[in-house]
């Protein structure tokens, strides 16, 4: 309960709300990237030879030299935990008793932010190898959530 809600003589205030619904186009590269997850269970990158960078998720252009990228490659579904956090709050700011384990998983020269599961918190470390666990093909929708989570694995 906020300070103002506890204070009976607080001045009144008006409330307003706006239902916000936005349409987001994944784009040429985004569509192909998400379809590869949905149809093939693959994580794709795109390569800029000039800069020597493999972008994951694959994208249409290099953010360094602005070259168009047309060389696509499968970067596999295993990567190292580059950094992670134990998140003790929900989206709306309320506290969580049990944390969500969130990591940035290095794939190519980019990677993906995702949740980790099937993991003991004591084992969790930067550099540990994890793999993507895909939802069953029939449940996939062409979303980043078609990857259910990442879990520890061996090389």
């Amino acid at each position: 309960m906020s300070l103002l809600e506890r204070y009976p003589n607080a001045p009144g205030a008006w409330l307003g709300e706006l239902p916000i619904t936005s349409r987001y186009t994944a784009g040429l590269a985004g569509e192909r990237f998400l379809r590869a997850i949905k149809d093939d269970g693959k994580i794709m990158g795109s390569r800029c030879d000039r800069c020597g960078i493999t972008y994951v998720p694959a994208r249409q252009f290099c953010e360094r030299c602005l070259d168009e990228l047309d060389e696509w490659l499968d970067v596999g579904t295993k990567g190292e935990v580059y950094t992670f956090t134990l998140l003790f709050e929900n989206l709306d700011g309320t506290a969580r008793e049990e944390p969500e384990v969130v990591a940035f998983i290095r794939l190519g020269d980019g990677g993906l932010v995702h949740k980790l599961d099937e993991i003991h918190l004591d084992d969790l470390d930067i550099g540990m190898l994890v793999e993507a666990v895909f939802k069953p093909e029939t449940e996939r929708q062409g979303s980043i959530l078609d990857i259910a989570y990442f879990r520890p694995t061996s090389p």
Binding site: T83, L87, L91, V102, A103, F104, L112, H114, I144, L145
Partner: peptide, 15 residues
């Protein structure tokens, strides 16, 4: 790529 995970944005500071 990120918002569907439904995470409080403080996760970025933690990471």
């Amino acid at each position: 790529i990120n918002r569907p995970l439904g995470l409080n944005t403080d996760f970025i500071a933690g990471m």
